[in-house]
Design a protein around this nucleic acid. Sequence first.
DNA 1: TATAAGATTGAGACACAATCACAACTAAAA
DNA 2: TTTTAGTTGTGATTGTGTCTCAATCTTATA
Lengths: 155, 155
Amino acid sequence: MENVIVKFKDFLKSHNFLWSKEREIITEQVIDNDYHFTADDLFIQLNQKGKNISRATVYRTLDLLEKSHFVSRIQMQSGKHLYEHIFGHEHHDHLICQECGKIIEFQCEGIEELQKKVALENNFRMTGHCLKIYGICSDCQKKKETKNESEREGE
Amino acid sequence: MENVIVKFKDFLKSHNFLWSKEREIITEQVIDNDYHFTADDLFIQLNQKGKNISRATVYRTLDLLEKSHFVSRIQMQSGKHLYEHIFGHEHHDHLICQECGKIIEFQCEGIEELQKKVALENNFRMTGHCLKIYGICSDCQKKKETKNESEREGE
DNA sequence: TATAAGATTGAGACACAATCACAACTAAAA
DNA sequence: TTTTAGTTGTGATTGTGTCTCAATCTTATA
Ligand SMILES: [Mn+2]
Ligand SMILES: [Mn+2]
Ligand SMILES: [Zn+2]
Ligand SMILES: [Zn+2]
C-alpha cells in the first residue's frame, strides 16, 4: 500500500497542500483499518501507539483523504460518521443491523444503473450516492427466535 | 387530516403512551408542514404561534411520530436531521443538490425491488432504507455555465 | 545555506443538535 | 377521590465536529 501514500502525496502537491509527518502517520493508520471506523477511533489508536496527533489534525486529514477519494464517509442514523478506506475496494453499499450494529457490504449493479437513470430523468448531475438498508441480520433473527422459544417454555 | 390525529392517538394508546395537548399541537403543526423541516423549525413555528412547548417535547413527539410511521427522518450530510410527514405520501427517496441544497423527491420501483432482493440474498430482514443521490441540480448546472461564459468574456 | 511566503499543527475554546435528569404536573383507571 | 404511571419544562449535559491563532514546519528561491 506504499502506492497509496505516493498517490495521496501527488494529490496534495497538485492541490497546493503540503506533505507532513502527521499526514503520513494518519494515512498509515487508515490503511491499517480494514473496516469502518470513526475519526475518534483513529485518534485513540494513534494515541495508544504514542503518536500524539491532535483530534483537529485527524479530522482535517480525513477530510483530505475523502476529497481525494481514498476514503469514504458514511453518515449513520445516530449522527456519527464512519470512515472506510477504499484503496482497491470496489464501490459498495451497506446493510445495517439495527439490533447488533453489524454492517454488511453489498454491490448491486442494477441499483447503480437505476440511480443513473433517475438522475438523468431529473436533469441532475450525480456525483455520488448513499444507500443504507436497515433491518435485522440473520444472526439476530435467530437469537430472537430462540429467545421467543425459551419464553414460551417458561410459561 | 383529522384521521391522522385519531390514528396517532390509537398508536399511543396501544403502546401505553398518553394523549396530551402538547402532542396534539405538535402533530397539527407537523401536518401543516408539507415539506422537509427540522425539529427546531417546528419549535420556532410553534413559538411564533404563541405555543410555548419545550424543545425536549418537540423532539420526544417527533420520535413518537417516527416510531408510529407518521413521520420519517432523514439524516443530512451536515449532521442535521430533516423530518417530513408521510400521511398520504407514498414512499420516496431524494436527490440532493450540493450547490443549493434543493431536495428533489423520486420514486423508483426497480430500486425498491432490487433492495428487497439484496436483503433476501443476505438473509436480512429489511425494515427500511435510505437512499440519497448527491449531485448538482439542473438550475445550478445552468448557473455554472453562464458564470463560466461571462468569465471567458471578461478575460 | 539563508530567507521568505505560505501551509500546517496543537491546544483548547467554541458551536450546535440532541439527550437527559428530575421535580412538578397531568391523564386515566379504579 | 385516590392511586399510579406517563408527561412536561427547565436547564444542564453530552458528543461530534469546527474554529482560532500563535508556534512550527515545508518548500521555493536566492
Ligand atoms: Mn463499507
Ligand atoms: Mn421527502
Ligand atoms: Zn444483528
Ligand atoms: Zn441546486
